[in-house]
Simulated scan of single mutants.
Amino acid sequence: MEARLRKMVRERARERCEYCNLSQDDSALSFHIEHIIPKQHGGQTALENLALACPNCNLHKGPNLTGYDPDTGKICTLFHPRQHEWGDHFERYQGRISGTTAMGRTTVWLLEMNREEQQNLRLD
């Protein structure tokens, strides 16, 4: 991936994970440029299919496009940073993120956003 494209993704995300909102400044690990729709599912290396993700979110998301809603057990699509507004599906209280929709709950659960170390890093 060319440096110019990486820079554009990072600037658009304001150096924050587009899933859990962790700031790159609050993490000792470098954030990843991830394919929202993975290459193995036909996703392209194009600006509209790339997101900045902290290592925790990216590694837990992997190639998944869906997961199980922990409240209903039904299959649900994951949050897509280019198609959905973060505030429509999540809310944050201190370092904890809650899903306010099935998509939000599924994404929080699958990406394990509320692991203790993640919550502690997100505290302001």
Score class of each variant (00 low, 15 high):
85 E>F: 09
19 Y>D: 02
113 M>C: 01
113 M>D: 00
24 Q>V: 05
54 C>E: 02
21 N>C: 10
78 L>I: 10
121 L>C: 02
54 C>V: 00
29 L>Y: 15
100 T>L: 15
41 H>E: 08
115 R>D: 08
83 Q>E: 15
66 T>S: 09
2 E>I: 10
73 G>P: 05
24 Q>A: 15
36 I>Q: 03
7 K>Y: 02
100 T>D: 05
94 Q>M: 06
71 D>W: 07
93 Y>V: 14
53 A>M: 08
89 H>A: 13
71 D>I: 09
13 A>G: 06
47 L>M: 14
68 Y>D: 10
63 P>S: 12
39 K>F: 14
22 L>G: 01
63 P>K: 10
54 C>Y: 01
14 R>K: 15
33 I>K: 03
26 D>N: 12
48 E>A: 12
37 I>Y: 07
56 N>C: 10
119 Q>T: 14
100 T>V: 15
90 F>S: 09
93 Y>W: 08
48 E>S: 12
17 C>R: 05
100 T>N: 08
62 G>M: 07
112 E>W: 04
61 K>E: 11
41 H>Y: 07
114 N>F: 01
124 D>Q: 11
48 E>G: 08
121 L>N: 01
69 D>F: 04
63 P>L: 09
4 R>Y: 12
63 P>G: 03
59 L>M: 12
21 N>M: 13
49 N>E: 14
87 G>A: 15
117 E>F: 13
121 L>Q: 11
93 Y>F: 12
48 E>M: 05
51 A>R: 03
64 N>F: 14
91 E>H: 11
33 I>Y: 09
21 N>E: 13
78 L>N: 08
122 R>G: 03
